[in-house]
Lab assay of single mutants.
Amino acid sequence: EVPFKVVAQFPYKSDYEDDLNFEKDQEIIVTSVEDAEWYFGEYQDSNGDVIEGIFPKSFVAVQG
């Protein structure tokens, strides 16, 4: 069931425009499960802007 919160276990950096880049310990709200390997989610950056994109499930852990 979406949405749910995950926390980055590792930093994720990608050159693909659709990917969500983040640092370790970033909290991310997952709004869609793309497939067995990928989530789609969002978070607010330090400027208060909402950043969204896809990212690999293996880089995050589900909270709770």
Results as ranks from 00 to 15, higher is better:
22 F>G: 01
24 K>C: 08
19 D>K: 12
32 S>P: 03
4 F>M: 04
39 Y>M: 03
52 E>H: 13
39 Y>L: 05
25 D>N: 10
13 K>P: 03
61 A>S: 14
10 F>H: 12
15 D>E: 13
43 Y>L: 05
17 E>P: 15
14 S>L: 00
54 I>Q: 12
4 F>G: 02
54 I>S: 13
57 K>P: 07
61 A>K: 14
10 F>V: 08
59 F>M: 14
3 P>A: 04
5 K>I: 12
62 V>K: 11
26 Q>P: 01
2 V>R: 05
24 K>Q: 09
18 D>W: 15
44 Q>W: 07
38 W>Y: 12
47 N>Q: 09
7 V>C: 10
3 P>H: 06
55 F>I: 01
61 A>F: 09
10 F>Q: 11
5 K>E: 05
12 Y>D: 03
49 D>Y: 11
28 I>Y: 03
31 T>Q: 06
56 P>V: 02
21 N>R: 07
39 Y>I: 00
24 K>T: 06
48 G>M: 06
36 A>N: 13
19 D>V: 12
40 F>D: 00
61 A>N: 10
20 L>C: 04
3 P>E: 04
57 K>D: 04
63 Q>L: 14
1 E>R: 11
36 A>D: 14
22 F>Q: 01
19 D>N: 14
42 E>M: 14
16 Y>H: 14
59 F>E: 05
21 N>T: 10
25 D>A: 07
17 E>Y: 10
56 P>G: 04
42 E>A: 09
16 Y>E: 12
44 Q>E: 13
59 F>H: 15
33 V>K: 07
36 A>L: 09
37 E>P: 06
41 G>Q: 01
27 E>Y: 06
34 E>M: 15
4 F>A: 02
26 Q>N: 00
28 I>W: 03
30 V>H: 03
3 P>T: 04
64 G>V: 12
34 E>K: 15
11 P>K: 07
51 I>D: 01
4 F>Y: 04
27 E>I: 14
27 E>N: 05
8 A>W: 03
28 I>P: 01
34 E>F: 15
48 G>N: 05
15 D>L: 11
55 F>S: 02
5 K>Y: 10
29 I>C: 15
1 E>Q: 12
20 L>Y: 02
54 I>A: 11
38 W>G: 01
46 S>H: 13
40 F>L: 07
39 Y>F: 09
28 I>Q: 00
49 D>T: 12
39 Y>E: 00
9 Q>P: 02
8 A>F: 03
30 V>G: 01
2 V>Y: 06
29 I>G: 00
32 S>W: 10
52 E>Q: 15
58 S>M: 08
28 I>K: 00
40 F>Y: 13
18 D>S: 14
3 P>I: 05
29 I>S: 07
22 F>A: 00
52 E>G: 09
57 K>H: 05
25 D>S: 07
54 I>D: 01
41 G>S: 02
40 F>E: 01
18 D>K: 15
18 D>Y: 14
63 Q>M: 14
54 I>E: 04
14 S>Y: 02
17 E>S: 10
43 Y>H: 01
27 E>F: 05
43 Y>I: 06
1 E>S: 11
9 Q>V: 14
28 I>N: 00
64 G>E: 13
57 K>E: 05
48 G>I: 01
52 E>V: 13
4 F>E: 03
54 I>R: 15
55 F>G: 03
64 G>L: 09
58 S>V: 08
61 A>T: 14
38 W>K: 07
44 Q>R: 13
30 V>L: 03
45 D>M: 10
31 T>D: 02
49 D>V: 14
32 S>N: 11
6 V>C: 08
47 N>P: 02
35 D>F: 08
26 Q>S: 01
9 Q>N: 08
48 G>H: 04
30 V>Q: 01
55 F>D: 02
47 N>G: 07
24 K>F: 05
36 A>K: 09
45 D>R: 07
6 V>R: 00
60 V>P: 04
62 V>F: 11
46 S>Q: 12
60 V>C: 05
49 D>I: 14
32 S>G: 12
1 E>H: 11
36 A>M: 08
59 F>T: 12
15 D>P: 13
21 N>V: 07
44 Q>M: 14
45 D>A: 11
2 V>A: 07
37 E>M: 10
20 L>K: 02
15 D>S: 11
43 Y>T: 04
27 E>H: 06
50 V>I: 14
50 V>E: 02
43 Y>D: 00
62 V>R: 10
3 P>Q: 05
14 S>C: 07
52 E>C: 15
15 D>I: 10
42 E>I: 09
6 V>Q: 02
26 Q>L: 02
24 K>S: 06
50 V>M: 13
15 D>R: 09
26 Q>G: 02
32 S>E: 07
3 P>N: 06
47 N>K: 09
16 Y>D: 13
44 Q>H: 10
16 Y>T: 11
25 D>M: 07
60 V>W: 03
43 Y>R: 02
59 F>N: 08
29 I>D: 04
24 K>A: 10
5 K>D: 03
1 E>I: 12
40 F>P: 00
39 Y>A: 00
10 F>I: 09
28 I>T: 01
9 Q>M: 15
48 G>R: 03
51 I>Y: 14
3 P>M: 05
50 V>S: 06
30 V>K: 01
42 E>H: 15
16 Y>R: 15
60 V>D: 04
21 N>Y: 12
38 W>P: 00
30 V>W: 01
61 A>V: 14
2 V>H: 06
33 V>Y: 09
22 F>K: 01
31 T>V: 06
40 F>C: 09
20 L>I: 05
24 K>H: 04
11 P>F: 05
30 V>T: 01
